[in-house]
């Protein structure tokens, strides 16, 4: 039994959930894989927990034109195992499969994970590289926020207290695109000390598009536009990759903790950026 008691509420519609969220003591729970450990550690002590599991329509995966629309309550296991996601957006399936362990992936959700915005979480790297759109609803309306604007700082996002994430949209990968997520994990927790998501398109032997998303290095995930600018237009050789990966940590205030110093994290970011880019290019060329 955890120390702090709370009321447990299960709204059956988004409208009812918004009503309950008007209370400043209320906290949303999706899968609970971040919130429950936080409550056990007394880092969170909500007076009311609003469990979204009975709100309909939040866990579907749909193809819509050139986009894949993913409901916020979709679990990591559903993302890693659904054939449509594996085929149309392998980077997202790969990032989902890299989270925690199978029991956690059976319960944890993409919406809950990104709302929590742990600086070492896996999804943000992939969502930055995919330039994902996050659809956020509030009473009487909704808005769409790009991943680069959504993730603001450690445990800090663009979400307002009375808003809920309803959907995450990512592009279907083009035929000539390869992607890879590479992480150095903390062995006990499985969290990324550094995680790099790379997407590369090849056209006529040259890199025609490249996106790099970084998690674990700084307070928030980010897209490494400086790496992308150095690599695009090149042949994507090992030397090109090395030159581009070398700048991934430039200008970033790197995290430092008992697992890795800032200097070591920056080193890991360069190494894993090169690995992710190499793997993505190899996959793009194999298409």
């Amino acid at each position: 039994m955890i120390a702090q008691n709370f009321d447990y509420l299960t709204p059956v519609s988004l409208a009812e959930a918004f009503d309950l969220l008007n209370d400043p003591g209320a906290k949303v729970m999706a899968g609970g894989m971040s919130l429950i450990p936080m409550m056990k550690l007394r880092l969170a002590a909500p007076e009311r927990v609003v469990d979204l599991r009975h709100v309909p329509g939040l866990n579907k995966i749909q193809q819509d034109g050139a986009m894949l629309r993913i409901g916020a309550m979709t679990t990591h296991h559903e993302l890693e195992s659904t054939p449509l996601v594996r085929a149309a957006c392998p980077l997202l399936a790969q990032a989902a499969a890299a989270i925690g362990d199978v029991q956690v992936r059976n319960v944890g959700t993409i919406g809950g994970s990104i709302a929590h915005a742990d600086p070492s979480a896996d999804y943000p790297a992939a969502l930055q590289a995919l330039e994902a759109e996050i659809r956020i609803a509030h009473r009487g309306g909704e808005r769409t926020v790009l991943a680069k604007d959504f993730f603001q700082d450690t445990f800090t996002t663009a979400l307002e207290p009375n808003e809920l994430i309803v959907e995450i949209s990512v592009p279907l990968e083009a035929k000539c695109t390869g992607a890879s997520y590479q992480k150095m994990l903390q062995p006990a927790s499985g969290f990324a000390i550094v995680g790099i998501a790379a997407r590369v398109s090849m056209d006529g032997g040259k890199v025609s598009m490249v996106r790099v998303g970084v998690t674990g290095l700084g307070g928030s995930s980010y897209r490494a536009a400086n790496v992308e600018a150095l690599l695009v237009g090149s042949e994507g050789s090992a030397a090109d990759i090395g030159k581009a990966a070398a700048v991934v940590a430039e200008g970033i205030d790197a995290n430092s903790d008992i697992h890795a110093s800032a200097e070591y994290r920056a080193h890991l970011a360069r190494v894993y950026t090169a690995r992710a880019l190499s793997a993505a290019i190899a996959r793009a060329e194999a298409q």
């Binding site: 609970g32 059976n106 319960v107």
Partner: peptide
């Protein structure tokens, strides 16, 4: 039908 860690779920869930 899904394996979960029962220390990371409330009974009410």
């Amino acid at each position: 039908g899904k394996a979960i860690k029962s220390c990371a779920m409330f009974a009410v869930q």
